[in-house]
Design a protein around this nucleic acid. Structure first.
Length: 319
DNA sequence: ACCTGTCAAGTCTGG
DNA sequence: CCAGACTTGACAGGT
């Protein structure tokens, strides 16, 4: 089984490189002329895309095959009072990004912000979510990256869990198929357990992302083996391999905040479970404050601990 | 260079 | 019904 590790958003090894530069709406509003406004949006976007290219090239150089985009790449593009036509200006650049991704066989994904709520009880929130997710799909389309997925949580628990799950499934039915076919769902650490999400994913026939730390924080004592098997099976119709999210708590066992690095001992225990449970390649998104550095440290720690696996490259092992 | 305040957006709880 | 917590930054802008 080939296991690839990925990281989120920022390459700490690259100084002064960020794809999250922004223009806040407040500051945008302070700019007097329309011309200056668009100039500001364009310069920030240009810088973000250029830095994204730098990060992707860094990933390629370091044999990293899995990376999560930030949700801030294009400032204010979903804001209803701005909604500028960034696609008119950055078509070429975004296509180039997509080309780099595809040619290097890198997997990239995207985690829309938490105010996108598919099962909100407020229709406006649901409609805004559709609008925002449509924008996210546009971005993938501009990159010509067909495999791009959108990771999102189940959302609200208003009026109880059961009703919320029904609301989720009902609302999802009204989402355009261009969004639906890109959605994948993740268990959270407060309301919707891995079992809940697995049941939902099986019903709506969309893939599940198992977040192992969330599962540790919120579960009903289920065997991780069964959940892992079930979650991976939701990927059977997909071209991409299944993926899980992995992080270690900052303090104590159930701290929801992410620690700087990954606890290697526990990580090895997870790999052992995976090895004995599923028999297919998969990807692990490492969510640690030290980002790429945490990924590299984890790989080093696996070596130091003489973990029984084959080290394929900087971010890939065969177990 | 460093520090502080800001940020569109949701949901939930408690008063 | 409203205010504040949640969580958790990351960055812009001012000093």
């Amino acid at each position: 089984m080939i296991v690839r590790l990925g990281y989120v958003a920022i390459a700490l090894n690259l100084k002064n490189v960020t794809t999250s530069s922004t223009v806040t709406f407040t500051n945008y509003s302070k700019i007097k002329s329309d011309e200056e406004k668009i100039k500001k949006l364009k310069s920030v976007t240009y810088s973000n895309i250029e830095d994204l290219e730098t990060i992707l090239k860094y990933n390629i150089k370091n044999n990293i095959h899995f990376y999560r985009l930030t949700s801030k790449l294009i400032p204010l593009y979903t804001h209803p009072e701005v909604a500028w036509e960034y696609d008119k200006y950055f078509k070429k650049e975004l296509l180039r990004i997509g080309k780099i991704v595809k040619e290097s066989n890198m997997r990239i994904d995207f985690h829309p912000d938490q105010f996108n709520v598919i099962n909100s009880v407020k229709d406006k929130v649901v409609q805004d979510t559709i609008r925002n997710l449509n924008h996210a799909v546009d971005l993938y389309d501009l990159m010509d990256y067909e495999q791009g997925k959108l990771v999102i949580h189940i959302g609200s628990s208003a009026n109880g869990k059961e009703e919320s799950i029904n609301r989720f499934i009902d609302n999802l039915n009204d989402f355009p198929s261009r969004i639906r076919k890109r959605l994948i769902f993740e268990n959270d650490d407060k309301v919707f357990t891995a079992t809940d999400v697995l049941n939902i994913c099986e019903k709506v026939k969309l893939p599940m992302v198992l977040d192992l730390h969330h599962h540790k924080c919120k579960n009903n004592g289920e065997d991780i083996e069964n959940i892992l098997k079930g979650a991976f099976n939701t990927w059977n119709e997909e071209t991409l391999p299944p993926k899980v999210h992995y992080s270690s708590p900052k303090e104590g066992e159930f701290d929801r905040r992410h620690s700087d690095y990954i606890d290697c001992k526990e990580f090895m225990e997870f790999l052992d479970i995976a090895k004995n449970t599923v028999n297919r390649d998969f990807d692990i998104m490492i969510e640690a404050k030290k980002k790429d550095q945490a990924l590299f440290k984890l790989m080093d720690d696996l070596k130091v601990n003489k973990y029984n696996c084959k080290f394929i490259d900087n971010s890939t092992i065969e177990i």
